[in-house]
Design a binder for these strands. Structure first.
Lengths: 255, 255
DNA sequence: CGTGAGCTTGACTTGTTTCAACCAACGTGG
DNA sequence: CCACGTTGGTTGAAACAAGTCAAGCTCACG
């Protein structure tokens, strides 16, 4: 990412206004572009009233690095500005379950704005840039701006809806159903962000991510995904995925 | 609407006034006794200001009856006053996944206070009495009383935590783990409501409920539960469950 | 008395995991 | 520039957890 990225990095206070817009360029089209919205409001705040107390720290991390660790820094609310991340819960024995994939514009979780998260880790799937807001700042902002508040609540409900879907998938659906649904849902989320070029999306997930999200093993994921490609339902190469036969895929997914 | 309780009680009009306290007696000890709290606030409201516009309808339903149906009555926020219920999502082919069991004091879902629920059904496990508030009333109340609001948000986060736990269970845990966890978690929730007598709780769930909550088949549930009893970890008879060996159970549950 | 809902048990089947070997791509350092 | 470890993906054989099918039982209820 070109641009005075260094400035955004952490605490250095010289950050020019242009750079902030830049770093959120990807998520700008997303209806809930929280990072940008919060930033804007925070800046307005700063000009009008008391000088600071409010700050947003932006950072970059390479792929595979942990962004956010359970109880570590409980006062922060990170939001993904660019790249993909995965939020998971780890179990004894190395098992792990991915609770959700985070796309540009997504906060680590909506609930996180109201209370620290327990027992959750967020790892970067691709290189990621994210901003961390202070929870107290975010909350103050929310209570002052009802419109913003409403948006947040609505997104929270949506997030919860996705998580209910996941429960159903894991509890009652076969591997084929789970995988087709995962693909369709990701494609949908990306499409809504304008990140889909005629049925084709960036797809940085490794098979072990997919396995951990669907409650399967990487081996089985490989087999099913192989099958999908042999049937020419999807095409998958070079970190990009194309949905060839959406109808069939949707049929497999069980509506 | 100051308290002609028969009105609240729904259909049978002979219910004496004591009955309202009675019906919420079970949940009175629960920190978030929303039904009672809302009622109290609503009543206060009524006295001070305009006469009505606010009302809470209470109803009884027998076991196995559907309490709340997807898009049906989207403006209502039902809260369980007495008995157990199950909130599930149904799939083609008769499969279903229970998302949560609702105990006395629980609203159908926290998110429901802010937005209608899609695609969810609530069925009575035991005979149930519940009150339905109007969402608009609830919201008005919440925004007027920050303390109440805070409680609701906190409960919402808790609910989400439970649902994350369920995802992990369904995605990454074995049948034994899932069942022991279900038992322990229910016991915990009941204990917090003061509904546990030395390791022993009312346990109205049928095995098919348990199956639908854990993503297993009733047959398999029977086998595992049978095994648990043979090992004398739990005792299960006459609609009540006693945890005999909590330590072993917790060990099986995988921490 | 009959009917239906619920539970148990056993034999068999199946979807998924486990294990293992192997290959390709990539970055790093000698 | 090559050797090498790491990470990711594929494939096949064998093992296993859970599902399916089926029969028989109890119990409550009208």
């Amino acid at each position: 990412m070109s641009v005075p990225e260094q400035k955004l990095r952490g605490l250095d206070s010289t950050a020019p206004e242009a750079s902030s817009d830049r770093s959120c360029a990807t998520c700008a089209s997303f209806p809930l572009n929280l990072c940008a919205v919060l930033r804007r409001k925070l800046q307005a705040e700063d000009e009008g009233t008391s000088p600071t107390s409010i700050e947003a720290v932006a950072q970059k991390t390479p792929a595979r690095r942990t962004i956010f660790y359970g109880q570590d820094r409980p006062e922060l609310v990170p939001i993904i500005c660019d790249g993909w991340a995965a939020s998971y819960s780890a179990l004894p024995g190395g098992r792990r379950q991915i609770l959700s994939f985070l796309l540009p514009g997504d906060p680590i979780s909506m609930a996180c704005m109201f209370q620290p998260m327990s027992d959750r880790t967020v790892v970067a799937v691709t290189d990621v840039t994210f901003c961390s807001f202070r929870r107290s700042d975010v909350q103050a902002l929310l209570f002052k701006h009802p419109d913003l508040f409403e948006i947040v609540i609505k997104s929270w409900v949506e997030e919860e809806e996705r998580s209910a879907q996941l429960i159903v998938d894991l509890g009652r659906r076969t591997a084929d159903e789970r995988l087709s649904r995962l693909i369709l849902r990701l494609a949908d989320r990306l499409a809504r962000r304008g990140m889909m070029d005629n049925q084709s999306i960036e797809f940085p997930l490794r098979q072990h991510h997919i396995a951990d999200a669907t409650g399967l093993t990487p081996v089985h994921v490989s087999k099913v995904l192989g099958e999908f490609q042999r049937k020419d339902l999807i095409r998958l190469n070079d970190r990009s995925l194309m949905i060839v036969d959406a109808v069939a895929l949707r049929r497999i997914s069980g509506s």
